[in-house]
Design a protein around this nucleic acid. Structure first.
Lengths: 109, 109
DNA sequence: TTGACATGCAAGTAAATGATTGCATATAAT
DNA sequence: ATTATATGCAATCATTTACTTGCATGTCAA
């Protein structure tokens, strides 16, 4: 999975809002989502395509309607690859910073 | 905290790499970081500024040297605001999708 | 089968972004 | 003091990005 694509997809407020909309109600059609967005349908389509490419949403066609579903898996990946990794060292980093600021050595206190 | 700023900061691979560098070794100077980056010092500076504005790194001046430290707190925020939120519904969403795909009602099986 | 509805495709535009170059400033070393 | 080092500031440029507009296609309903 391309984690950068996921971050890029999440970087735009409109796309974040689309995810929020889908979180509130799963399986919404394109036009349903458009009603909450202050832009043209095509703009929304393009945002949704990016979200889809980042694997953040899944699309199901039902006749002429396009239903959108949230996929929480990539966010789980972010947690695994970034947040967990950095948080594990959280206290260490902060202590390290504190010591440096105080001009001390790392003395594990 | 502006969560969009954090995502935007994380969206660029160069900035992600800078965070990785700081994760490996905390407190590196600007020029130390530059040595690993295939771009001018000024470009790196600008990336670091964005990371700083997103509160993902903290900067400490030591004489003429600028030391950079990782701040894991915003990533923690992401976890709290996004990942936890979506993951909580993970199984529900997937079941919902599965049922829709099979043309069933939600029957809680 | 005709009209309305749901969506796609593609070209064009304005603004944001990543990166560069050139010059300025402050700290350290000799 | 003078020189080298570490960094900042600002203008510029190319690319990407978010959006728009216009037209095309496919599906449902009367």
């Amino acid at each position: 999975m391309d984690i950068d694509k996921v971050f890029k997809a999440l970087a735009d407020p409109s796309r974040g809002y689309l995810l929020d909309l889908l979180h509130r109600e799963s399986g919404q059609t394109l036009t349903a989502l458009c009603m909450h967005m202050d832009m043209t349908r095509q703009a929304v389509t393009q945002h949704l395509q990016q979200l889809e490419e980042a694997n953040l949403i899944a699309v199901v066609w039902q006749g002429r309607e396009k239903l959108h579903y949230l996929n929480p898996v990539p966010l789980h990946e972010i947690h695994a690859r970034w947040i967990g990794k950095f948080e594990r060292d959280r206290l260490d980093v902060l202590r390290n910073l504190k010591n440096k600021l105080e001009g001390k050595d790392d003395d594990k206190t």
